[in-house]
Each structure stands twice: as C-alpha cells, then as structure tokens.
Design a protein around this nucleic acid. Structure first.
Lengths: 210, 210
DNA sequence: TTGTCAATTGTCAGTGGCTGTCATTAGCCT
DNA sequence: AGGCTAATGACAGCCACTGACAATTGACAA
C-alpha cells in the first residue's frame, strides 16, 4: 500500500472514530460535520469526500456486519430449511462480525453508537431502510437455495420478512436493556426465534397457564 | 367554525394538495418547500407553521390511515386469535380509509404519492420508521386483548412483527405493480397472509411439485 | 534527483431545509 | 370603533451538502 493510500486510510479511520465518539457522547443531532472535521483537523469538504453524508459514518460498521451475514447465509448447507438457515447464519456470523469490527473501532464504542442509532429517529429510519435492503438480498439467496424465482413465489420474501421482524424486535429490546453484550444478544435471539411458532399458533390464554 | 379557522383549514389543505401534486409529478427531492409555498402564494415560513417539515406533508394521509387501522383492531371481537384479528382489522379498515382520504385529497393523487414514497429512499426510510411505531401500538393492543404484559411476554410484538413484515412486502409489490387499486391490494394481502404458514413449514421443494 | 502528471485537499460560494425574531396585518370580541 | 390576539411576512442565521477552482502533495519516469 502506497503512502498515499495509507494516508487516506488513516484519515478515513480518524474521521470515522471521531464521528462515532462524538455521536456516542454528545448525540447524533448535536454533532455537526464541522465538529467531526475539526476533531481530525481537516476541512468539512474533505469529510464529504470520504463519506457521502453524516449518516454514513454511523452505518459504516453495521454495513460490515451485513456483508458478513450475507456471506454466512451463502455458505449454509443446502439441506437446511430456510428459517433454519437464516437463524444459523445470523447466530454464527456474530463472532466474525465482532472480530472485523474490532479492527476498525473499539467494540464498546460500536455498542454505544448502536444505542444512539436506535434512539435517534433519523438514524432509526435509515437503519430500517437498510434492513429492508438487506432482507431483499437475503430473500434472493433463499430463493436461489430453493431453486425458486423470487418474483414469482412470495415465500422467500415472506420468511425473510418474518425473520427480519423478529430480529428487529430483538435488537430493540437488546439495545434498550442492560445486558448489551454479544452473549446477551445471542440468548435473546434464540429465545425469540423459538417464539415464532407459538406466536402464530392459536389461543395464547389457554397455553399460558398449563 | 370561525372565518379564521376556515381560512386556516383552507390554507393547510391547499398546501397539502399542492405538495402532493408536486411530489407526484415532479418527484419529492425535486420539489422545494419554496415551490410548495409559491404554489399556494404564502411565504415559506407559513408552510413551516402548518407542517413540521416537508416530509410531514407526504405522510399526512398515511397517518390518517394508521389511526383507522388502530381503531379497527380495538373493536375486533376478543374471540379472534391475534393474527386473525390483525388480518381482519387491516382488511376491513380499507373502506373507511378510502372514504376518509377522499375528503382530503383525490384518492388517485394519494396512490401516486404512495408510489413516490416507496421509490424515494428518504421517504421510504421515514415510512418504515412510522410503521415500526404503528407496530408498537398494535402490539400493545394485542397484549391487552390477551391479558398479557407486552414487556414480559414477547409474543405480542412477535406476531405483529411477522404481520407487519408481510404487509410491507405486500405494499412494496403492490405499489411497484400495475394493479394499483384497492381490490388489488386486498387480494395481494390475503394471498400473502395465507402464505405465512407454508413459508414457515419445512421443505418447499417437496411441496412445490405435487 | 528532478520534473511532470495526477490525486488530495482547502477555500469559497451557493442551495435547500428549517428555526428564531420582530414588525405588520387581519380577524375577533366588547 | 377600538383594543386584543392570532396569523403572516420579511429577515437573518444554522446546518447538511455540492460544485468549481486553485494550491498542495505523493507517484513515477526520465
């Protein structure tokens, strides 16, 4: 890697970390792009040459995670039923995610930023849209696994939508709770995914007092 | 109603219609608030006294619809299983929605704006966040119906998440397709909701060639 | 090593969404 | 009719973001 390339990488990482640190401590809306640029001592214009917008810094790490989930699903054995493949892909990609994230920013900082995303309306909106795009990708992979046409058969998109819904509920509760750790997330996720069947089944009132 | 009140209502409606018309023809991003204000011949500042932001005009009608869905779910007979109650609430509220919308803006204009929402990233993001908030409300109602505590039992949020996922997939396909009518939507929705069971069940490849 | 070329950066000016302030206007009520 | 209050317009300013141009800095060949 060139000196030039190395310099660029350093500047980008510095901007990223400065932005995330500011978001986590001061809040997203309370942080201006000028603040971020000033923290790294570059011009505002330079910031926008590295990131398409303020938002992009907040989602730089999540984007990495998404890539790894997609990859994990792609390498799932074809024998698994769709919902099973999704579940295992997500659960098993977290270790790789953690590792990849740590290379870029302290995992603790990422966790704090994650809470900011969930609690900042503008970021939550962006997060949900990104999730929708991810689900579209996953549906495509599921369809391929099953040898179906995504646009002809609704089932791939539906399972993924169901799955995505559960994941989002989980994420929200996890980020709002106290146990903001990897294991906490894993536990919550498995618990909630196990509830999908029961939740769809009939009378809850009958079940709940055995 | 006062002359003053009537005048305000007229101004608000004029701004709303002008905005939606511009969004539908020129596109959301291509429409400035100044354009909207100019179309009604008021100052930009006045626009912001009626709407919190440009976005709010686009979601004024959808907000109405959401209110009616919530209302419909509240009046569902307690005998219905959660997923059934949600399904019927949505399907049966559309007539009321259509009627209420027509009072405000031509239904055709609303449909065109809907497509703009689905195809404009910033609006889609906002739409998804609003949907998440709606789902939170619906989960609360479901929990109440079943005599559960939303924060203790995950099932209410999960069914609603599943349901919401299917609805969103349906909305997207509907707005992207040709049959952008009420009946088209109704049909798609029932079809897709009927796929929830099959989509969760095991091997699709075995099922698809009977 | 040096000179040339290309990439990176800073500066400046401008647009659009949005807000606070203050003077002006217009409807309301006695 | 005249005072009160609410609605409006005009103006200034903040912030995210973009285009254009000039200055700087690393890359690479002669």
């Amino acid at each position: 890697m060139n000196l030039r390339e190395r310099k660029k990488r350093r500047t980008r990482d510095a901007l990223l970390r400065a932005a995330l640190e500011l978001f986590a401590t001061r809040g997203y809306e309370e942080t201006t792009v000028d603040d971020i640029a000033a923290a790294v001592d570059v011009s505002q214009r330079t910031f926008f040459r590295y990131f398409a917008g303020k938002e992009e810094t907040a989602f730089f790490v999540p984007r990495l995670a998404e890539t790894l989930v997609v990859e994990a699903l792609r390498t799932r054995p074809p024998g698994e039923v769709p919902l099973e493949a999704l579940r295992r892909a997500v659960l098993e990609s977290w270790d790789a995610i953690n590792e990849a994230v740590e290379e870029l920013v302290p995992i603790d900082l990422h966790m704090r930023v994650y809470r900011v995303i969930e609690s900042t309306p503008a970021l939550l909106a962006a997060h949900l849209r990104r999730s929708a795009e991810l689900e579209e990708q996953l549906a495509g992979i599921i369809a391929e696994r099953e040898g179906l046409d995504v646009d002809a058969d609704p089932r791939p998109r539906i399972v993924v939508a169901l799955f995505g819904g559960v994941i989002r509920v989980t994420e929200r509760l996890w980020s709002a709770g106290d146990d903001v750790t990897l294991d906490g997330m894993r536990e919550l996720t498995t618990t909630y995914l196990d509830q999908v069947g029961p939740a769809l089944a009939g009378n809850w009132r009958a079940e709940q007092s055995p």
